[in-house]
Simulated scan of single mutants.
Amino acid sequence: MTDIRNDRETLFAYLQDPATQPDFWARVADDVDWTVEGTHPLAGRYRSKKEFTAATFDRLAKVLEGGVKLTVEHLYVDGDTTIVELASTSTTKEGAQFDNRYCWVCRFDGDMIAEVRAYLDSAMVGYTVLRNELRQRGG
């Protein structure tokens, strides 16, 4: 169990820096079933890694200086399930702290993430994304 826990700690630590995030995404199944809970512009159910990253990480990268940066606060491992609590260390392009918290409930199939349910601060995401996208459009 210690080996699995260490592996998962290393895996989710890749989210701290956009330069190491490809190592994280390499362990997410192409056909991942990823649900982002809430009522905000990024919420929804995504049926592939490509669809999920385009609608969330790529969209956030357009409004966050240096892209999405997440640090692990807590990690819980039980069999094929890992629950990870993450904190954003990102800043918006207008200089505001994007102080969001996430909880991802991940199901692994072997070494690959096959399914995720993600919970976050809907109000913060909606406000940040829409405000910054509007600002970028000159609104």
Results as ranks from 00 to 15, higher is better:
V129R: 10
D7Y: 11
S88P: 06
F24R: 02
R131N: 15
R107F: 04
P18G: 03
W25P: 01
A19P: 00
E73C: 00
D7F: 04
V77P: 04
T10A: 11
E9P: 01
F12R: 05
K50N: 00
G38T: 05
A54M: 00
L75S: 06
T91L: 10
E37Q: 14
T89H: 08
R45F: 02
D17L: 05
T35K: 12
N100T: 07
K93D: 13
P18A: 04
A55E: 06
D7H: 03
S90M: 04
N100S: 13
V125F: 05
A123S: 14
A114W: 05
D7V: 00
D31R: 08
V68Q: 06
A123F: 15
G139W: 14
K50A: 13
Q97A: 14
E133V: 11
M124N: 13
Q21H: 06
L15G: 02
G126A: 14
T53E: 06
Y127S: 14
E37H: 14
D111S: 12
M112R: 15
K49M: 04
S90V: 03
K62G: 09
C106P: 03
R107W: 06
A61Q: 01
A96M: 10
K62P: 01
R5A: 05
D109P: 02
T53G: 00
V125S: 07
D23V: 00
T92G: 08
F57W: 13
A54N: 04
G79S: 05
A26T: 06
Q21S: 12
T35M: 07
D23H: 10
V129D: 10
T81K: 13
E115I: 10
F24Q: 01
R101P: 01
T82N: 07
T81N: 09
T2L: 01
V63K: 08
D99H: 12
E94L: 12
V77G: 08
G95L: 10
S88R: 11
N100E: 13
V68R: 02
D3F: 03
D7E: 11
L120Q: 15
Y14T: 13
V32P: 03
T128N: 10
T20A: 02
V63P: 03
A19H: 05
R131F: 11
E73Q: 11
N100W: 09
Y127V: 12
D3P: 00
A54Q: 13
Y46M: 06
V28H: 04
K50L: 00
V68C: 04
V28M: 06
G79I: 05
R5E: 11
A19N: 01
T128F: 09
A61Y: 02
A19W: 02
T39W: 09
R135Y: 11
L15T: 03
T92N: 10
G139R: 14
F108T: 08
S48N: 00
P22E: 07
D111P: 07
